Amino acid sequence: MRMTISTHDHVLIIDDHELVGTSLMLSLRSEGLRADWRGNAGGEEGILADVRRLDPGLVLLDLDLGRDRDGRMLDGVHLVAPLIDAGWRVLVLSGSSDRVRIGGALADGALAWVPKNAPLPALLRSVRAAAQGRPVMAPERRQQLIDTYHEQTTARSELRARLDKLTQREREVLAELAQGHRAQAVAERFVVSLATVRTQIRAILVKLEVSSQLEAVALYRRASGR
């Protein structure tokens, strides 16, 4: 059965995988929609520049958009707010199961999240609902993901505040420890004595209010979102 949606309702798929994007585009076109696919060429700025030249409609947005020409990771979450500001509705269609990132996209105004590995009929039903202005996911589930995002954001802010107590060199030492380097290797890296590095490590533990290097490294990684 075809979707009862106006063919004037534009659906734009933003996904770095051409096979996935074009396959979904053709499926939507077979349902009577005006659908197009856009890859990650030009990075975030290029994507937004192209999108702003189009009549707004519904975006199916992947959160993991690969890398730009400079090798930097492209995060679809950063596109949600600008897309909405440009008049688009955003449906997150992503293989990512990171509750914090999904919650961040929803907090920025995305309508809902649909797993990319959902069966095609389920994907089409979700697009139909979003295009018609109907809920795509339960409000309770949506709010739960948004709450998770806010909780994690608050926790990371508190961790970063503790890390801000460290000097620049102490942060560099902690970063080296987080990469698995031992104190001796850190001393050689910064051309200082082992005793100096051990003194810096003790200062790090005191300032972060932890009792071991493992705890300090774990705190550093949580604050970095790793």
Rank of each mutant, 00 (worst) to 15 (best):
G103M: 10
R53E: 14
R221P: 02
I13M: 10
D70M: 12
A129W: 08
W37G: 01
A35F: 05
R69H: 13
S193E: 13
G180R: 10
T167P: 06
L208F: 09
G87L: 12
A155F: 07
Q132E: 14
A107I: 02
R69L: 13
E31W: 03
T7H: 15
R160H: 09
E158D: 10
R169P: 06
G71I: 11
L74W: 08
A49I: 03
I5W: 13
L65R: 04
T199E: 13
R222I: 03
L159K: 11
L93V: 14
R142Q: 12
E18R: 14
E209M: 03
I102M: 02
S27Y: 07
V192K: 07
R141S: 08
L123Y: 01
S23G: 15
R182C: 08
V20H: 10
D55Y: 03
L58Y: 04
Q179V: 12
H17K: 09
A203I: 05
R141C: 02
S97G: 08
L166K: 08
V192W: 06
S94Q: 11
R169Y: 10
R142C: 01
L111C: 07
Q184F: 08
A130H: 01
M73P: 07
Q168L: 14
A41C: 05
I14M: 01
L145M: 11
H10K: 15
V136Q: 04
R202P: 01
A185C: 03
L124N: 01
A175P: 04
V51N: 04
P119A: 11
D85Y: 07
Q179N: 14
G21M: 10
Y220I: 02
L33P: 00
L54W: 09
K207Y: 00
L163S: 11
Q179W: 09
L93R: 10
G76H: 11
A138T: 06
P82I: 14
G104K: 04
D68K: 07
